[in-house]
Design a protein around this nucleic acid. Structure first.
Lengths: 246, 246
DNA sequence: CGCCCTGTTGAGTTTTATCAATATTGGTGG
DNA sequence: CCACCAATATTGATAAAACTCAACAGGGCG
């Protein structure tokens, strides 16, 4: 299996063969396979390593005391679950699998070794962390300002582009292995309302959704409904000045 | 002026005299003073240094094309505005002053020097970044799941504790130099609704608010209204194993 | 004194949630 | 291949939360 982290980081900067070798060694310490609704790590636990999603989808989530749940982030292949979290004494949220998933556990010392001795890779990993923060900020904007239709359209644009960045789209289509209840928990809406909003988007020909496959026939149309601007994903090879020259 | 960043980082780990000296040198390159509604850095600009809030309040914010605004984060003394952002080609949001504010511009090379040669300080700065991410995640939870009263109560708890962590509370009181319109933009509510919700909290004796001074007579009561759990602020000296032993 | 900014109030509307029932789907064993 | 089951999706009706608009009040400051 190709390491999707490499693919993802190459949206930032070109990596040398040695860099890639280093990153592919991340996979050698142990790969876990989990089924849907199994937790990768749970609130309160102390993280000891860094988890990298190799295949499948996961999410960060948090329950309130009274049972309401918010999905805080979706994690797709190439995403690091918890870079640097080992500095904290305990997780303040949980991460759970949404589909069958395989994840690599990267030992802390490997990360630290990279940041000490391989500045280009370290910067690429920092870029990864910065973009995941940017995504979190954009979710704040969506939840605070966008209405149901904009919010849903925005999320679908984001997921499509993130999947495209790791080669997981097929033309105008990608997988969307989420139940409506999960979309609802991520968007801060009820499942009923998500259902109706999806129907609106379908009726306007903005999306097609059969089974677990999402098709966006006209990305610009969907972007404009969502007021989606892709800048925050920082996918435009922003670290090109660091490119490996081999 | 004492460097509030030092005070903040000491919630994580104890710093040596040398560490503190290093951090206080952050202030020597240039301090900017801005008035309310002036921007510290604007969306689209390329960040070249790291800004540290010394006094006053600021916020991250983002406008949608149609003029709606979301405040993404509040920044109080001791907060770093944009650690590592110089890796990105452009800011995906703006940062603006809310009150008269003074900020230190820390040159990129100082940050990089620290992360290379001073691991304890570097880890403390990583902790700072991790907690600001955790705060962002908690805002996602608030905006997605909490209703107006819970959301407002939660924000007030958070701000009170963050100010206390840098010594800016006075018993059960702290400053809250925000207009209702700004609270509204942060909470994803209308100003009218913020106004009414504030009145509810006042009527229940959960808060007192005169002028720019907030008093929380019974923090536990307010916490329980908000379903606020302070874990995500990671203020409990979590890096004590790294303590300087002098 | 008067002005502007901020806060407050009331009335009516829109968006979204809730509840409960029904339909559809995908997977499983016979 | 079919019948069945559970999980998921869909629908309708009603209620709650929050928004909008518009007017008015209060306070600080030149």
């Amino acid at each position: 299996m190709v390491n999707p982290l490499i693919r993802k980081l190459e949206n930032f900067t070109r990596l040398s063969g040695q860099d890639k070798h280093l990153l592919s060694e991340f996979l050698h310490e142990g790969i876990r396979h989990l089924g849907p609704r199994e937790d990768i790590i749970r609130e309160g636990e102390r993280p000891q390593s860094v988890n990298l999603v190799l295949s499948g989808w996961a999410c960060r989530y948090k329950y309130l005391e009274d049972g309401r749940r918010q999905i805080i982030a979706f994690l797709v292949p190439g995403d690091l679950c918890d870079n640097n979290f080992f500095l904290l004494r305990q997780m303040d949220h949980s991460i759970g699998a949404l589909t069958p998933i395989s994840i690599a556990q990267i030992p802390r010392h490997r990360i630290e070794e990279v940041s000490l001795h391989h500045p280009r890779v370290a910067q690429a990993l920092s870029w990864e962390a910065l973009t995941s923060m940017a995504i979190q900020r954009e979710w704040t904007v969506s939840l605070g300002q966008r209405d149901a239709q904009e919010r849903l359209a925005h999320l679908l644009c984001e997921l499509y582009l993130r999947l495209r960045a790791v080669g997981l789209t097929d033309g105008t289509s990608c997988e969307l292995p989420l139940r409506q209840a999960e979309l609802a928990d991520a968007l801060g809406l009820s499942t009923v309302h998500v259902n109706r909003t999806l129907q609106e988007l379908r009726a306007s020909q903005l999306i097609m959704l059969k089974g677990k496959t999402l098709t966006i026939p006209d990305l610009n149309a969907l972007r404009s409904v969502a007021q989606f601007t892709p800048t925050y994903l920082h996918l435009e090879h922003e670290g090109r000045h660091l490119d490996a020259n081999e």
